[in-house]
Design a protein around this nucleic acid. Sequence first.
DNA 1: CACCGTCGTCGAAGCGCTTCGAAAGTCGCG
DNA 2: CGCGACTTTCGAAGCGCTTCGACGACGGTG
Lengths: 341, 341
Amino acid sequence: MATIQDVAREAGVSISTVSYALSGKRSIKPSTRDRVLDAASRLGYLPHASARMLAANRSQIFAVTAPLHTDTDHSAHMVFAMEVTKAARTHGYDTLLLVDDDVSEGMRRSAASSLADGIVVLDVDAHDPRADLARSMTYPTVFIGIPADTTGLVCVDLDFEAAARLAIDTLVSAGRQRIGLVSHPLETMQRESNFPLRFRDGFAAHAAELGLEAPVAYPVEHRAHEAVAQLLAAQPDLDGLVLNTSVDVASSVTAALAEHGRSVPQDVAVIAAGVTFSTERFAVPFDTIPLDARASCSVAVDILARIVDDNLTAPETTLIPPTYITRGSVSPTGAAVTTGT
Amino acid sequence: MATIQDVAREAGVSISTVSYALSGKRSIKPSTRDRVLDAASRLGYLPHASARMLAANRSQIFAVTAPLHTDTDHSAHMVFAMEVTKAARTHGYDTLLLVDDDVSEGMRRSAASSLADGIVVLDVDAHDPRADLARSMTYPTVFIGIPADTTGLVCVDLDFEAAARLAIDTLVSAGRQRIGLVSHPLETMQRESNFPLRFRDGFAAHAAELGLEAPVAYPVEHRAHEAVAQLLAAQPDLDGLVLNTSVDVASSVTAALAEHGRSVPQDVAVIAAGVTFSTERFAVPFDTIPLDARASCSVAVDILARIVDDNLTAPETTLIPPTYITRGSVSPTGAAVTTGT
DNA sequence: CACCGTCGTCGAAGCGCTTCGAAAGTCGCG
DNA sequence: CGCGACTTTCGAAGCGCTTCGACGACGGTG
């Protein structure tokens, strides 16, 4: 591999001139700069990563901690990891993947050894141990997801409360007042994975505000059948259904409703809210308030890059406003996208 | 952060003694070593990653290239990336995630800048551009998956041909001679994603060897219905079914068969082969010849670590023998695991 | 004409570690 | 008692880069 030495020799200048010509941190006569650039590309020069890291005290690497719980949706997980990686690249950073039991130890290790310049935390639980860890480390860290105690942390996430409100308001505007929620399995709720809780609580709160009785069902083993039956038992005239649940459950909701003689959207209007999957290929494509991985990740990484590069401090919590995608499961119209608050 | 200097001072020895005490590359008097180890842990010392990289000319990082195609199974993808990461950790390596358009450029970049010590290539197509790239780079690289031309490459994968044979032989032993295959969508086959092709070809070849007529169906839009109908049209007495397909299709095969009045395993015995998902939660759990991500990744990473650490050369292709898991969809018995060839 | 500010470039220090060669100390044997 | 062989530790070079301070050349000003 060519070193900066080789480039300097080839261009007939000193090492420092090459460095400045390439980094642009001092002005270099245009003609010299061109000679250097030429030489560099002729030699296929790329700075040695570790040498640069050592001298600049920057690794240009972000660590991503992504634990795998048994009830983790791997597919959503991957999308988030990918989106973080892509966003990081636009800022000149690569991403290191930290998994599993490696997660807390990995966070500590990559910080203590200056392996990473910052950390992105995915799949955050309400009482995530990584929250305390981040507080104690004072290392640039951004959470995608919101733990119970956000003191001293920087968090980014979809505004699930607003998403729940938007879902309810949309149904109400469509004349649906008897609304139910299919949530996540109790297993997930008990782990206090943060967003299912926030969505459900936001849902319950807004329903109460509007004076609506709004039952909630927690599916078992990813089956929609019993969940739908429960809701119908609690609310026999059910005419609006909000889904904040797994793809398995959502995809069989239409069938489950059909078993009870209800069709979508005529009898029951359905909105999938705060979900990562697409409903496009469903038998009846559902209106969606997506949990947009790209948006969250790009905002989170922007913030992290700003903290590291410009060492600014960031606001504690950034909520991303929900977006509404119409696919005809509330009122049968063409697809459209609008933004809520 | 504490440096090796601090540890040396604290332990009252020289820097090099600390280095040797920690690395074990030269013998150090036990009492001194203990003093050093004490000092290090007292100071919470962890070597500065970039300094170590620069001096040792090793980054202890593997790059993982994982492109996302539109028909990519994100879930399987994630599992592979995670398993590579876990396996890498057991060898003291971290993993850098390379995605998307970044993939070829990322491979080149992480090699040319010595960012990574080696590269793991995931989701390999038959005519994957990364194969040529790897050949031209002469950088330690292992493919998980097998491209059409493996000359000069190191590849690891499940032995799909053997898996297909094992599936057929198992069905035949169970007295099923009228066998069909549900494969992947034509979209995937046309991209020449390597393993669906290898499985199908292995299936067809072994069926021909046994003198069996064995139709193949390619599902559309992840629906089992038409695929099953096609097979029944081609083979009205279908009594054995091999699934090398997506989880969406596989999970609705039982229902699709039921529509034609066939039950599993009484009328049709079913084996899911070369798949990453678990069939445990299916209505009828299928016998499985799994594409074991952990096995492939761990073998691949072992090889890569051996190439990098001990600079050995590796055999071109390592095929992982298939494993058979009984769940009662061929003959109704308890679960069991056996190994084929 | 002496002086000063600017521009463009260079030399050298230093980032924190690994590793080579050698020094100092210890022991046993002739 | 002296010498070689071994053990244990140290010093210093060097990995490839960034960055600070400084120097020479140049042109404008008093």
